[in-house]
Lab assay of single mutants.
Amino acid sequence: TRVETATETAWISLVTALHLVLGLSAVLGLLLLRWQFPAHYRRLRHALW
Score class of each variant (00 low, 15 high):
Leu18Ser: 00
Gly23Cys: 14
Val3His: 00
Leu24Val: 11
Gly29His: 04
Arg2Leu: 12
Val21Ser: 14
Val15Gln: 07
Val15Pro: 03
Trp11Asp: 00
Pro38Leu: 09
Val27Asp: 05
Arg43Val: 09
Leu22Ala: 10
Phe37Asn: 07
Arg2Cys: 09
Gly29Phe: 13
Arg42Trp: 07
Leu44Lys: 01
His40Ile: 05
Trp49Thr: 09
His19Lys: 05
Leu31Ala: 12
Phe37Trp: 06
Val3Pro: 01
Glu4Ala: 14
Thr7Asp: 07
Ala47Val: 11
Thr5His: 01
Leu31Trp: 13
Val21Leu: 14
Ser13Cys: 15
Arg45Gln: 09
Phe37Gln: 04
Leu28Ser: 04
Val15Cys: 06
Trp35His: 15
His40Pro: 15
Leu33Glu: 06
Leu20Ala: 11
Leu20Ile: 12
Gly23Thr: 13
Glu4Cys: 09
Trp35Val: 15
Arg34Pro: 01
Ala26Gly: 10
His40Asn: 11
Leu30Pro: 07
Arg42Tyr: 10
Thr1Ile: 13
Ala17Val: 12
Trp49Gly: 00
Leu28Asp: 03
Leu24Gln: 05
Ala6Phe: 05
Val3Leu: 11
Pro38Val: 10
His19Gly: 03
Ala10Cys: 00
Thr7Gln: 13
Gln36Lys: 11
Ala17Ser: 06
Ala6Glu: 05
His19Cys: 04
Leu31Gln: 08
Gly29Ser: 13
Val15Tyr: 00
Trp11Val: 06
Leu20Phe: 12
Pro38Tyr: 14
Trp35Gln: 15
Leu20Asn: 00
Arg45Ser: 07
Thr7Pro: 13
Phe37Asp: 04
Leu33Cys: 14
Leu14Glu: 01
Ala6Tyr: 01
Ser13Leu: 14
Arg43Ser: 11
Ser25Asn: 14
Trp11Arg: 01
Arg45His: 03
Leu18Glu: 01
Ala17Tyr: 04
Val27His: 02
Thr16Lys: 02
Glu4His: 13
Leu14Val: 10
Thr9Ala: 14
Val3Gly: 01
Ser25Lys: 04
Leu30Phe: 13
Leu20Ser: 05
Ser13Asp: 02
Phe37Met: 07
Thr9Trp: 10
Arg43Met: 09
Arg45Cys: 07
Val15Ile: 09
Arg2Val: 11
Ile12Tyr: 08
Arg34Ser: 07
Glu4Thr: 13
Leu48Ser: 09
Leu28Lys: 06
Leu20Trp: 02
Ala10Asn: 01
Val27Lys: 01
Leu28Tyr: 09
Arg42Phe: 11
Trp35Ser: 15
Tyr41Ser: 08
Trp11His: 06
Gly23Asp: 05
His46Gln: 08
Trp11Ser: 02
Val15Ser: 03
His40Gly: 13
Leu30Trp: 10
His46Leu: 09
Gly23Glu: 05
Thr5Ile: 02
Gly23Ile: 13
Ala6Trp: 04
Leu22Asn: 00
Leu22Gly: 07
Thr7Glu: 04
Glu4Met: 15
Ala10Phe: 00
Leu14Tyr: 02
His46Ile: 03
Leu30Glu: 01
Trp49Tyr: 14
Ser13Thr: 13
Trp11Ala: 00
His46Ser: 11
Trp49Pro: 03
Ala26Glu: 00
Leu32Met: 11
Ala39Cys: 03
Leu28Asn: 06
Val3Trp: 01
Leu32Lys: 00
Ala10Glu: 09
Thr7Met: 15
Thr16Glu: 01
Pro38Gly: 09
Ala39Val: 15
Val27Thr: 11
Leu28Pro: 06
Phe37Val: 09
Leu33Gln: 05
Leu18Ile: 04
